[in-house]
């Protein structure tokens, strides 16, 4: 399974791998233009494939006020 962490929402979900980043975002219900997807110190592009057993973080980039 892929572990998907969304620290700002304090949420996590697991998805069967492998999956493209774009599909992970769709499963998480997140608009691709509003987030960074990171893996450690790496930024992932939306077409990249995430393997079973890996972890990714979805970081929102939207600020208000």
């Amino acid at each position: 399974m892929i572990l998907v962490r969304m620290p700002q929402k304090k949420k996590e979900l697991t998805l069967p791998g492998p999956k493209r980043v774009l599909d992970i975002l769709a499963a998480a219900g997140v608009r691709p233009t509003t987030v960074l997807v990171t893996q450690g110190t790496r930024l992932l592009t939306k077409d990249q494939r995430v393997e079973d057993g890996e972890t990714v973080d979805i970081i929102s980039v939207v600020s208000g006020g």
């Binding site: 620290p7 700002q8 233009t33 509003t34 987030v35 960074l36 990171t38 110190t41 930024l43 970081i59 929102s60 980039v61 939207v62 600020s63 208000g64 006020g65």
Partner: peptide, 26 residues
């Protein structure tokens, strides 16, 4: 905003990622 965040991340700038609690309904 995404480009700015990507630049900050790749540069290793440690910024506050939490949203201002006052701006939830902005």
């Amino acid at each position: 905003e995404m480009e700015t965040a990507a630049y900050g991340f790749l540069k290793g700038i440690d910024y506050v990622t939490e949203e201002c609690p006052m701006s939830e309904d902005a």
